Amino acid sequence: MTDLALPPSRRPFVEVTGLRFRPWSILWIVLTAVLMQLLLVPGRAAGAWLYKHNIELFQHQIWVFVALATLFQIITGLVALAVMRRVLPQADNHLRWPPGRTYAGLSIAVGAAMGLIMLVADYWPQLLAHTAPDGGYDITSAGAIAGWLGVMAAAGPNEEIIFRGLLVGMLAVLVPGRLRIGRLDLPVAAYVVALLFGLAHYDSFLHNPLNLAIAQQIYAFAWGLTYVWLMERSRSLLAPMIAHGLGDAVEVGIVMLLMAAWG
């Protein structure tokens, strides 16, 4: 009896299928990491430059810098998807309206749960002490609050276009194969990009408490897998965009409420 004929109850807990790992597979993974930086860093730098040279116009609102960086990164991500379509046409970027179920309801529930988990993971010392989290968000005006919530929600389209649409789509072709852990069955590319997604938040170690930085690495990896799970089931980026953007907005929204209540 072959492994494929084994009943589900007798299948190994961890199983790799279809993986063709060649010597240059490492090179593709390294190039994927480099491409991630090439897509993220210039957009952030362009946003910072434009913000600093028009700081009075933007009234010193930090969320405007985040919005500018997000806009530039979305543009570079879409350009990269267009290039991938020409260079690697067999890669699926999932940038389409869901052909079947949208999974919007599930995405909303997942995003809300993510926001609460991130809140506890990031700010549990403040929550236990009933002290206001130091999120650095401006809550002095309705415009600033709306701006921060907006840019947090925009992280969904921004990062899902780059990480799941482009990087997973590309790497799934260049390093094919699937890894099943228990009932979670995803492309090997999903796990690689989930690790990169965590590493993309490396600057948290430079600016935040160690417990917060470590927590971000852990849940960023878990969320990265969840987004691919949603993407594969809906065959679209819409569901992970919703979950991702809502999760970030929920956490920041609650932090701002606690800053107002406990500050």
Rank of each mutant, 00 (worst) to 15 (best):
R10N: 12
V83Y: 11
S236R: 01
N211F: 14
A67I: 01
L68Q: 07
V16Q: 12
N211T: 12
R86C: 06
V228P: 00
D185M: 10
R11L: 15
I145T: 04
E232G: 10
M170Q: 10
Q73L: 03
D134P: 08
V175W: 10
L237A: 02
A5V: 04
V228D: 02
Q73T: 11
I242H: 02
E159D: 09
R22V: 13
A69K: 08
R235S: 13
T140M: 07
Y202V: 15
V255H: 10
V30W: 00
M84W: 03
Q216S: 09
E160D: 14
G136L: 08
M84C: 10
G247Q: 01
V192L: 05
L246N: 08
V173Y: 02
L6D: 03
I242S: 08
R20A: 14
L19V: 14
A121E: 01
L166P: 00
V250Q: 00
P42Y: 11
I139Y: 04
A5D: 15
Y137I: 05
L212V: 10
Y51D: 03
R86H: 12
A190H: 10
A129C: 08
A112K: 00
V64M: 11
D122C: 02
V64D: 06
L40I: 14
N211L: 12
H60K: 10
G165P: 01
D122N: 15
V120E: 06
L106Q: 13
M241C: 12
L40P: 06
G135Q: 04
G165H: 00
W28K: 06
M231D: 08
A215S: 15
V83R: 04
H207S: 15
I117P: 00
